[in-house]
Amino acid sequence: MSVIYILITVSLIVAVIFFVAFVMAVRSGQFDDGYTPSVRMLFEDELVEDADKNENSEPSK
């Protein structure tokens, strides 16, 4: 049953890794702006080509 010492140690190490990841995320400014990245990830570079194709079919309001 002394395996439990190893298990607890391992689980704590895993927990601490996640905690360090959290601290690093805060440090890099991930929590400063909670909105813009959610929009940014939806942009794609190839949108320009699509735009040229769609221009003719652009429905008029």
Partner: peptide, 19 residues
């Protein structure tokens, strides 16, 4: 420099609370 200490503290407390 924005003050992020509250987020750190919240993280520390949450981490300890769960474990």
């Amino acid at each position: 420099s924005t003050n992020r200490s509250l987020i750190y503290k919240l993280g520390v407390a949450g981490f300890a609370f769960g474990n």
